[in-house]
């Protein structure tokens, strides 16, 4: 009876917490739309953008027609309102660089970026958790030092440099994998490894310290003295508890992974969202860039929300009235 009451109480608190977090999303997304909108417009004026897009031989009449066609002759607040209304209608506008609907371009590119991120995430979780657990179990041995040094190396090395090196070594010299481009899943392996190595380093370090802390807890000692098998003690009692902060960090790192994918896509010439935004930015395609940036912001915001919610399920001790420390 008391159990049921407590469960209902926690559930209602969780619902309130989730609702509160959802309501908080609106101001965040509003700011995100504003930043995405202004980002491409504050640097150069519409006239400059028109000339850049139309080329050096464009006449004043062509430029005027361009400004009218894309609504750039209107005041900024009206342009912003038009864009937001378009977003609600599902119309993200037409890319200035490619001449295709932005929604179509994003839909073509985002699966590739998701594949890359998914593969990188899998690699980082497998290597990171394994490395972290091994480092903790063999604390202060050469194995621990190796896992720690490799983690420090991948955290410190710039990803574009790692990307170029991997492409040269594994692609060009050893010929194991394609150096660049995208013509199938195998083209994603090398970039995913590059992208995943840094995250695995972060996960490994966190898993190691979390595991070390858990392994010294009283309940682990109790489990051991009860005569439980080593494997059960490590996995069921140790790792399960040690993974709580790790899971949160992984969820929090998804937007970061998106940013990393942008650099990696550029180095490996993968036609994902990163290259799309890069091409858009280099060509003053503000319509393409603003919608893409907004999309990434939304992914970041929802990843954070997911991390917060996940946290409440993984660790019921969390005070749902407070925002968890992530």
């Amino acid at each position: 009876m008391l159990d049921k009451f407590l469960a209902r109480y926690i559930e209602s608190k969780r619902k309130r917490f989730i609702m509160k977090r959802l309501i908080n999303l609106f101001p965040i997304l509003f700011v995100a739309t504003l930043v995405a909108f202004l980002m491409m417009r504050v640097g150069r004026g519409p006239h400059y953008i028109a000339r850049h897009v139309l080329g050096v031989y464009a006449t004043e009449e062509m430029i005027e027609a361009f400004l009218v066609e894309h609504g750039l002759h209107r005041p900024l607040h009206q342009q912003y309102t038009d864009w937001i209304i378009g977003l609600f209608r599902g119309d993200l506008g037409t890319s200035l660089r490619f001449g295709n609907p932005v929604g179509e371009l994003i839909m073509n590119r985002i699966p590739i970026t998701f594949q890359l991120m998914g593969l990188a995430l899998s690699i980082s979780i497998i290597l990171g958790i394994t490395g972290g657990v091994i480092g903790a179990l063999y604390h202060n041995t050469w194995v621990d030092y190796v896992t720690e040094i490799q983690a420090l190396f991948w955290i410190s090395a710039p990803s574009f440099w790692v990307g170029v090196m991997f492409s040269l070594i594994f692609g060009l010299r050893l010929g194991l994998l394609p150096t660049s481009g995208y013509n199938g899943f195998e083209y994603l392996i090398l970039p995913a490894v590059v992208l995943g190595l840094r995250l695995q380093a972060i996960i490994a370090r966190l898993t190691r310290s979390s595991m070390l802390s858990v392994l010294n807890k009283e309940y682990i000692k109790t489990a051991k003295t009860k005569g439980l098998k080593r494997r059960i003690v490590i996995i069921k009692h140790g790792l399960r508890n040690a993974l709580i902060p790790v899971l949160t960090i992984i969820a929090m790192r998804i937007p970061w992974l998106f940013g990393g994918a942008m650099v990696t896509e550029q180095v490996f010439n993968i036609p994902g969202m990163g290259r799309l935004i890069y091409t858009g930015a280099m060509n003053f395609d503000f319509i393409l860039v603003q919608s893409s940036i907004l999309l990434i912001s939304m992914i970041a915001v929802f990843a954070n929300l997911t991390a917060d919610i996940l946290y409440t399920f993984v660790d019921p001790r969390i005070d749902l009235e407070e925002t968890p420390e992530t």
Binding site: S167, L172, S180, F268, N269, R275, M282
Partner: peptide
């Protein structure tokens, strides 16, 4: 290719 460097590597490979 947005950048010639990966294209040159791809040609060499």
């Amino acid at each position: 290719y947005d950048d010639a460097t990966p294209a040159v590597s791809a040609l060499e490979a």
